[in-house]
C-alpha cells in the first residue's frame, strides 16, 4: 500500500472519528445539564441515583463502560440489539460518560455565580426559568469554557477507544493498515497521530475563539 493510499484511507475513517466526536458532544453537553439538575433535585432518591451514576462514570475506565453498554443488553437483559449496535453503543457510552463530567463542570460554574444574581433576578420578578436562562446560564457558559475545553480535547483522543468495540474509526483503521502485508507500517501510526494533533489544534482554536467572544464582559 502506498503512503498516499494509506493517508486517504485514514482520512475516510477519520469521518467516523469526527462523527463520534460530534454526536458525543451534541448528546453530552445538554445531558450534563440535566444530570446537574437531577443532582440538585428536591427528590432524595433522584439525587442518590445521580450521585452514584456520576461516581461510577468517573471511577471506572471508559473502555470498560463501552464493553458494558455493548454487551450488557444482550448478555444481561437478553435483548436483541440492532445491527448497528456497535456504533450506537459507542455513542451511548461516550454520551453518558461525558455527561457525568460535564455535570460536574456545570456545577462548578453555577455554584461560583454570586447569590446576589439570583436575588436581584427574584426581586425583579423573574420566574425560576427566566432566572436560569437569562441570568445564570449565560454566566455559567463563560465560566465553564476552560474546563470544558480540557474535556473536549480529551474526547478527541478518547474517540480511539471506539476501536475496543470494533467501530472502524481512524484508530481502528490505522491498526488494520499497519499490520497488513506491504503496508507503510509505523508510518501509519505517525499519520494517525498527525490527524489527531491537527484536529485538536482546530478544536482548541475554536474553543479559544468562543472564550474570546465571551470576553466582552467580566
Amino acid at each position: 500500500m502506498t503512503v498516499s493510499k494509506m493517508v486517504l484511507e485514514l482520512a475516510i475513517a477519520f469521518e467516523q472519528t469526527i462523527l463520534i466526536f460530534l454526536l458525543t458532544l451534541i448528546g453530552s453537553l445538554p445531558l450534563g445539564l440535566v444530570v446537574y439538575f437531577c443532582k440538585k433535585s428536591k427528590v432524595a432518591p433522584i439525587r442518590w441515583i445521580t450521585e452514584l451514576y456520576i461516581s461510577i462514570m468517573r471511577g471506572t475506565p471508559l473502555m470498560l463502560q463501552l464493553m458494558v453498554v455493548y454487551f450488557g443488553p444482550s448478555l444481561l437483559l437478553h435483548i436483541s440489539v440492532p445491527s448497528n449496535w456497535r456504533f450506537m453503543a459507542t455513542i451511548v457510552a461516550f454520551v453518558i460518560n461525558y455527561a457525568a463530567y460535564f455535570a460536574e463542570i456545570y456545577r462548578g460554574g453555577i455554584e461560583s455565580i454570586p447569590q446576589g444574581q439570583y436575588e436581584a433576578a427574584q426581586v425583579l420578578g423573574y420566574s425560576k426559568l427566566q432566572t436560569f436562562f437569562k441570568v445564570i446560564l449565560p454566566q455559567m457558559i463563560k465560566r465553564v469554557i476552560p474546563p470544558t475545553t480540557n474535556e473536549v480535547i480529551t474526547l478527541v483522543k478518547d474517540t480511539s477507544l471506539a476501536s475496543t468495540l470494533g467501530v472502524v474509526e481512524m484508530f481502528t483503521k490505522a491498526k488494520q493498515i499497519a499490520v497488513a502485508p506491504k503496508s507503510p507500517g509505523m508510518l501509519t501510526f505517525l499519520a494517525a497521530a498527525i490527524f489527531y494533533y491537527i484536529f485538536n489544534f482546530i478544536v482548541s482554536a475554536f474553543m479559544k475563539w468562543i472564550e474570546k467572544k465571551l470576553n466582552y464582559y467580566r
Partner: peptide, 23 residues
C-alpha cells in the same frame, strides 16, 4: 442592594429594560 448585583453580561440598558419587558 449594597453590592449592586447588576447582571454583568448585559449592557446598562438591557439590565434596566429586560424585567419591565419580559416580566
Amino acid at each position: 442592594f449594597q453590592s449592586f448585583n447588576l447582571f454583568p453580561h448585559r449592557t446598562v440598558l438591557k439590565n434596566i429594560i429586560d424585567a419591565p419587558v419580559s416580566v
